[in-house]
Design a protein around this nucleic acid. Sequence first.
DNA 1: CACCTTACTGCAATAGAGTCGCACCTGGAA
DNA 2: TTCCAGGTGCGACTCTATTGCAGTAAGGTG
Lengths: 156, 156
Amino acid sequence: MAGTGRSPLAEDVEATVESILSEMRAEGGRVTTGRRAIVRSLVAASDHHVTADDLAARVQADHPDVHRSTVYRTLDSLEALGVLHRIPFGVGGAVYHLVDHAHHHLVCTRCGSVVEAPAGLFTPIAAQVEAETGFSLDRAHVMISGVCAACRGTPR
Amino acid sequence: MAGTGRSPLAEDVEATVESILSEMRAEGGRVTTGRRAIVRSLVAASDHHVTADDLAARVQADHPDVHRSTVYRTLDSLEALGVLHRIPFGVGGAVYHLVDHAHHHLVCTRCGSVVEAPAGLFTPIAAQVEAETGFSLDRAHVMISGVCAACRGTPR
DNA sequence: CACCTTACTGCAATAGAGTCGCACCTGGAA
DNA sequence: TTCCAGGTGCGACTCTATTGCAGTAAGGTG
């Protein structure tokens, strides 16, 4: 998928959108205009993270009649379906991304910026953590917080 | 609680409280009844994490006239002072702990429970992360999210 | 000890993220 | 075409956290 990385081509987007929608349908869900628009925005933005609010704004640009709560509910469904990850943290609300685009998240607790880390980075540690604490790191869903380089330079 | 002899003795608590309060005073801050109560609760709870709400409840049990906003503001001051860490995440608000009690936090994104990890666990990786991404992990302030053992057993 | 500056506090209003109940609508199978 | 369960819009509500303001009191000074 989107082999060349950054900006997804229109056909790729549509193909991915349809594949996700048919997954929803297969699970007994229904495909509505709103859901299609939401999934499309999500796929189109797959090279970075979006907040729910952000996403609602994008969707409403094309479909002003799609309500905020619909966005939240659809996001919920997608997460339940396993195609979407929600990364909750305190600075400015949760961010979402497709599992397709799995990686770790380095979240700055001061400015809220999210830096991506290679997905394999913590694999060696995962086993140790699990052995010592019983806590299982979901490899596609790890978020590490700390302070980004920019904020470390700033006194506060 | 933490059977490993970690339950703080009353004298230890008072000593720690006074040392923190005198730090506040040294920085030009003032020591009030409310602040003393807040710091005391914080120290008394030092073997686990507390939310602001939690802390407000504990403080108000003894001092009903201490307002929530005072708790938040005191927490802020303590963080600015560098004696307190705030770990923000989406499930049920931020948790706090004294820097004294440094460790990593494994936060379950489903149930919000916090498991502690040995503080040295990620040291070897920190260098690699910094080299590859420019992101500096604050070793005393790292939070890893994932799914705890209990929640992994649960379908959803 | 009385005084005075100003940090701190209580309160209430506010903001932002997210959830929920309810009546109405509609996708899609029969 | 019909039918109905799943989806939607709307708005009110919850929960965490912040802020402005006026009053209070900590603690240094004389």
